[in-house]
Design a protein around this nucleic acid. Structure first.
Lengths: 186, 186
DNA sequence: GTCTATAATTTGATAGAC
DNA sequence: GTCTATCAAATTATAGAC
């Protein structure tokens, strides 16, 4: 399954043929159906494993009940921290989202997205209410900004490259909370 | 062509069949080949039109030779401003990038990406050199952050929705330069 | 400039021998 | 648990009539 996920990530779900997966696994395409009953089932396992892990991690941080800003900081770290262990799954979600969401079987993708959005937006709003975050920003828009910046990083992030995910997270958190500007606005 | 682009954006390049494009155009699939010699040619025109427009707009702002921060601000506005007129092309670039880049014919996509990266990174470095931007941020990483946040917005941005692209740009610029934090770091 | 008809290939999936 | 053999369907693209 991990092997198939890598190919899906590299070539896209639709462009990946069952024959290709089988060949890479060292068997023939017919034999693959002894392990999986369809191509969709394979990608299904890949994606749901990722989402279950992500949501349970978010939940764990939120249920500690800390202040919003450190909670959000932790959530950013969880996101970037997923890039490595779930690289293939995240890539597939990014690239094949618009295709997969059309298929009834993958309705849970949209549902999971809603659950996650609520978690983030809640924390942002609490941060505003408690005066830790600027009141003039749009919570939902801000959530999307953060979410997008984290997940799209999977496109260029290379494990073992010059930048580790912890460094990425720190950099992003720094810019996100304190901004790019050095002194007074120009 | 604009019609085909919409379908590519909605369903993905590979999932879109030639029959589908023809049907939506009110003709049969065979007839489509009177107008285009292949499916790739159609998407080629869509993407190169977008990239030519984008790069020439960036160039125009940069050649005005203003200070880095207002130049970067303008560049962010150009990006968000492209979401509406080039929505389909941007969506295809986002969703089918990893597939298209494998095809020799689309080598120019990667080249264009390099040109654009240089433009952004140059401005960010100048901003740091002139003291308008924090010196402790990574220019290339910051560019990627900005780029990603802009282009991925095409996934959820809806023309005529509650948020216009100008509003989006303003919100993003505000957070980007000044940060989310309200008061002192916690 | 569109249609009909069809070629050539590829694809996901199955059946049964070993 | 893998292989051989193959099916049924779908796909891009072409040829030629109108």
């Amino acid at each position: 399954m991990k092997l198939a996920a890598e190919i899906f990530a590299r070539k896209g779900f639709q462009a990946t043929t069952v024959r290709e997966i089988a060949t890479e696994a060292g068997i023939l395409s017919g034999s693959l159906y002894h392990h999986f009953d369809s191509k969709e089932t394979i990608v299904d396992e890949v994606l749901s494993t990722f989402l279950d892990d992500l949501i349970s991690r978010y939940r764990a941080v939120i249920e500690k009940g800390g202040k919003p800003r450190p909670t959000l900081t932790e959530m950013v770290r969880i996101g970037f921290g997923s890039l490595e262990p779930h690289r293939a799954a995240i890539t597939v979600m990014q690239n094949d989202w618009s295709y997969l969401r059309q298929i009834e079987r993958f309705d849970y993708l949209v549902k999971a997205e809603h659950v996650v959005e609520r978690m983030w937006v809640d924390q942002i709003k609490r941060g505003q209410a408690e005066g830790q975050l600027r009141a003039d920003i749009d919570p939902k828009l801000t959530y999307r900004m953060i979410r997008d910046a984290i997940w799209v990083a999977v496109r260029w992030f290379r494990p073992g490259g010059r930048l580790g995910t912890a460094h990425l997270a720190d950099h992003y958190i720094s810019v996100l909370f304190d901004g790019l500007a050095a002194g007074e606005p120009v």
